[in-house]
């Protein structure tokens, strides 16, 4: 009996030979669950969460590669709003980031003209395997209750530097953590949204653990007015149209 004969015989007796591949949706759910504290997390939680808020919420992208141009300096977060995410109690475990590099600023993002890098704490750290970890902090302008939003338009959304689908992993105090699954533009593994105001709305974005959202950000601001919201076919179609295959 040769080695090949032996391997053939073992393959014929492979207990996993009849194992069928998992459906894509189940695979995605499993991977999303990996970032939850409890590995076998339910797909949806019935727990309703406080709605986050508009003015001056900050989004911190704590892993992956994200390239953002600078934002309006008036809207840029104050240094105390910037989130060194690994320092947030409870976040380090959820994100799984190592204490040595997770979320801590290392270098500044390239600023766009007229933007002060000190007010744009977009940061990058590179892991040993060459993958980058980037932290970016985004803010959004105060929502004007008198402004009526029009239907989202692809041309407007196309200006976003960051557009992704993500599942809400957890809400702790004023920080919402989202797990990014796919990105039309920009790249991240985890996004953290901080509500710095205590006001109860984040541009109509109601973070519910386990639910999937589409989120866009432009000039360090989360895009509201219907551009970020539940992952629904109508909104997804706008994302698909805004970011055609290049």
């Amino acid at each position: 009996m040769t080695d090949d004969d032996l391997r053939d015989r073992m393959r014929r007796a492979d207990p996993a030979a009849s194992l069928r591949p998992l459906p894509d949706e189940e695979v995605r759910r499993l991977v999303a669950g990996a970032a939850l504290d409890a590995p076998a997390a339910p797909r949806f939680s019935s727990r309703r969460l406080p709605v986050l808020v508009g003015a001056a919420a900050a989004v911190a992208v704590v892993a992956g590669v994200l390239v953002l141009s600078g934002g309006d300096s008036e809207q840029a977060p104050r240094p105390d709003v910037a989130l060194p995410t690994s320092a947030q109690p409870g976040l380090e475990n959820g994100s799984g980031l190592p204490d040595t590099s997770g979320g801590r600023p290392a270098t500044s993002a390239p600023p766009s003209p007229g933007t002060s890098t000190s007010q744009v704490p977009t940061t990058t750290a590179t892991s040993s395997e060459g993958r980058k970890t980037t932290v970016a902090v985004l803010t959004e302008g105060p929502a004007d209750p008198n402004v009526r939003c029009r239907q989202p338009e692809a041309a407007v959304l196309a200006e976003a530097q960051m557009a992704f689908e993500a599942t809400v992993l957890k809400v702790e105090g004023d920080v919402v953590t989202l797990r990014v699954h796919r990105a039309w533009t920009g790249e991240a593994d985890v996004v953290e949204v901080r509500n710095a105001t205590g006001s109860p709305v984040l541009l109509g974005f109601e973070p519910e653990i386990g639910r999937r959202y589409l989120v866009a950000a432009k000039d360090l601001k989360v895009m509201g007015c219907g551009y970020s919201g539940l992952d629904e076919p109508a909104l997804r179609a706008v994302y698909d149209e805004a970011f055609p295959q290049r």
Binding site: V31, R131, A163, H181, Y239, D240
Partner: peptide
């Protein structure tokens, strides 16, 4: 276009 998968997701899947 279809959104592309981000780092960990693509590898883990």
């Amino acid at each position: 276009m279809e959104p592309r998968q981000t780092g960990f997701d693509a590898v883990a899947q």
